[in-house]
Design a protein around this nucleic acid. Structure first.
Length: 345
DNA sequence: CAGCCGTGGTT
DNA sequence: TAACCAAGGCT
């Protein structure tokens, strides 16, 4: 009776953390809420980088393999570039893998093998932007950082009925959230908000009836709640065509390493020409593949030897076709070689 | 700021 | 099914 209703409704973090204690997802990189254990900064950082623009389901297997093979940041820093890139193959956004290695090596060289425990210190490392610096600071080091990802943007935009389109709305969202971050359990608070966005306050069909923030959510019950957060219209994707060269010799296939910058940078690939607007020739098999900003039809053609084409200058190697799975080809080429080998079979 | 950078799941 | 979207960072 002594507690005002406004105080109860206003306890945003309390309601959210109570919900989290009941409903937290069980994830390989997450220790149980209130378990008292200290999360390993290396594992937190690795998971957060893998989770950038990538779903939990896609990350799980990669996280298990990476932590098994490279249990500490020292192990990862000592790994070979090609091994790490191959282990990342299929996860996408390959600049993350290059930055991951660079970051591990900076942590070893400049920080004595320990991750900086402040948001600013983390933010200065390669591959760590605003989100990842805040999330690692909060989850691994208990810092009351303002952690904002796409889930948080959606939850806050709805809770506060922010109709400003992204990315302009980021200022309002940050200002609103900064007032809500608790000094106690900031890491659980951040993860709770993300869990809520992923499982309750979903892009479509949010489960408002079971939401712990329902009482004071300004968008609750609105027919147009799915409109929030407002996003800019997307641009149309062009369609491109390209060739890939199948150069086989004694059961081995000629692979190249793509340049660090640009599409699939640093990854092993089949050699081939530039991707253009029109198909150049027909081939043995072809695959359609969607990238973020264009769609590609890639056609496989036989070539006799690497030195006969424009591939002579490319750094390459012969790879046993029987062991092609271990080559670390990105999905685009994996689809193509799978189709080729299936056709021959 | 806006464009670039992968992939797979969901609706 | 085509569109949308995801624990973003870099230039």
């Amino acid at each position: 009776m002594s507690v005002q209703t406004s105080d109860i409704v206003g306890d945003f973090a309390g309601r959210l953390l109570d919900w989290y204690d009941q409903s937290a997802r069980v994830l390989p990189w997450r220790i149980a809420p209130n378990s008292g254990g200290d999360p390993d900064p290396y594992r937190v950082w690795l998971a957060e980088v893998m989770l950038q623009q990538t779903t939990v389901a896609a990350v799980a297997g990669y996280f298990a393999r990476f932590t098994e093979r490279w249990p500490t940041v020292a192990d990862l820093a000592a790994a070979g570039d090609a091994d790490v890139m191959a282990a990342w193959a299929g996860l996408g956004y390959y600049a993350r893998a290059r930055n991951l290695l660079a970051c591990a090596r900076v942590v070893m060289r400049d920080h004595g093998g320990r991750f900086p425990d402040s948001e600013a210190g983390l933010r200065a490392l390669p591959g760590i932007g605003d989100y990842t610096a805040a999330s690692v600071a909060a989850i691994a080091f208990g810092r009351a950082a303002v952690v904002i990802d796409a889930n948080v943007e959606r939850v806050i935009a709805r809770h506060r009925l922010i109709e400003t389109p992204l990315p302009m709305a980021k200022r309002e969202i940050r200002a609103a959230l900064a007032l809500l971050v608790p000094g106690d359990r900031p890491g659980d608070f951040a993860q709770a908000l993300m869990d809520l966005g992923a499982t309750v306050c979903t892009p479509r069909g949010p489960a408002c009836a079971i939401c712990p923030l329902m009482a004071d959510c300004r968008a609750r019950g609105r027919a147009d709640i799915e409109r929030l957060p407002v996003k800019p219209p997307k641009k149309a994707k062009p369609h491109r065509h390209g060739l890939a060269h199948w150069i086989e010799q004694d059961g081995q296939l000629w692979l190249v390493r793509r340049p660090d910058k640009g599409m699939l940078g640093g990854m092993r690939a089949l050699p081939g020409g530039e991707w253009g607007e029109v198909p150049s020739e027909s081939g043995i098999v072809s695959v359609d593949h969607g990238f973020t900003h264009f769609d590609l039809t890639l056609t496989l053609v036989r070539r006799a030897a690497p030195h006969e084409g424009p591939d002579a200058a490319a750094e390459g190697l012969w790879w046993p076709i029987a062991d092609l799975d271990a080559a670390g080809l990105p999905t685009l080429y994996r689809k193509l070689t799978d189709k080729m080998l299936e056709r021959d079979a």
